[in-house]
Measured scan of single mutants.
Amino acid sequence: NNDALSPAIRRLLAEWNLDASAIKGTGVGGRLTREDVEKHLAKA
C-alpha cells in the first residue's frame, strides 16, 4: 500500500524502478525503511 510509504521511500523506489511489494519492510508496522530498500538493491 503506497499510503504507508514516506515521500523519501516513494522517490527512492521510483528512482530505481522498484516495486514496493517485492521488498519486506522492517519498520514500524512493516513499513519500508531506507535500509530495507538499500539491502534489496545490494542483493540485486
Rank of each mutant, 00 (worst) to 15 (best):
K39V: 07
G27F: 04
G30R: 03
L12V: 04
E15L: 15
V37L: 08
V37W: 02
R10F: 06
P7N: 11
I23K: 00
V37S: 00
N17V: 04
E38A: 08
D19E: 12
L32I: 15
A42T: 08
H40T: 05
L32G: 00
K39T: 10
T26V: 03
L5K: 02
R34A: 10
A4Y: 15
P7S: 10
K39G: 08
L41Q: 04
S21K: 10
V37Y: 02
V37D: 00
N17A: 07
A42R: 12
K39F: 09
E35C: 12
H40A: 14
A20R: 05
N2R: 11
R31M: 14
L32P: 03
A20H: 05
N17L: 06
A14S: 08
A44Y: 15
G25N: 02
D3R: 10
G25W: 04
G29M: 08
R34Q: 12
I9Q: 02
A8Y: 13
L32N: 00
G27V: 02
L13D: 00
L41E: 02
A4N: 14
E35S: 09
G29H: 07
L13I: 06
L18E: 03
A4Q: 13
S21E: 10
G30W: 01
S6P: 11
N2W: 05
N1V: 14
R10P: 00
V28P: 15
E15W: 15
A20G: 07
P7K: 09
N1Y: 06
A42Q: 13
A20T: 05
E35V: 08
E38K: 07
G27A: 04
K39H: 11
K39D: 08
G30H: 04
E35Y: 11
E38G: 04
R34N: 07
A14F: 11
H40S: 04
H40F: 15
A4K: 12
P7R: 09
S21N: 12
A22V: 11
G30F: 01
D36N: 02
S6K: 03
A20V: 08
R10N: 05
T33F: 02
R31Q: 13
A14H: 09
I23H: 00
A14K: 12
V37R: 00
L5W: 05
L5D: 05
L5Q: 08
T33Q: 04
A20Q: 06
H40Y: 15
A4S: 12
N2D: 14
A22D: 15
D3I: 11
P7V: 11
A4V: 13
P7Y: 06
A14C: 12
A14Q: 11
N1T: 13
L12M: 09
L18D: 02
L18Q: 03
E38T: 08
G30A: 04
A14V: 07
H40I: 10
G29D: 11
G30P: 02
L13S: 00
R34V: 15
P7M: 14
K39S: 09
K24G: 05
L32T: 02
R31Y: 07
R11V: 09
A20I: 08
A44M: 15
N17E: 09
G25Q: 03
E35P: 05
G25L: 03
N2G: 12
A20S: 07
V37P: 00
N17G: 15
I23F: 05
A14R: 13
A22Y: 08
A44P: 06
T26E: 02
N1G: 13
D36E: 01
A8G: 08
R11D: 12
R34H: 08
A20F: 06
A22R: 07
L18G: 04
L5T: 06
A8W: 10
N1F: 08
L12R: 02
H40Q: 05
S21V: 07
T33I: 05
N1R: 07
K24Y: 10
A42D: 07
D19G: 04
L18R: 01
E38R: 09
K39E: 10
L18I: 14
V28G: 06
D36V: 01
K24C: 12
R31D: 05
L13Y: 01
K24D: 07
D19P: 07
E15N: 07
D36F: 02
G27L: 03
A42S: 10
K39A: 14
L13T: 01
G25K: 05
N1L: 13
K39W: 11
G27W: 04
L13E: 00
T33L: 07
L13M: 05
A22H: 11
A42P: 05
K39Q: 12
E15P: 00
V37I: 14
T26P: 01
G29N: 12
N17M: 06
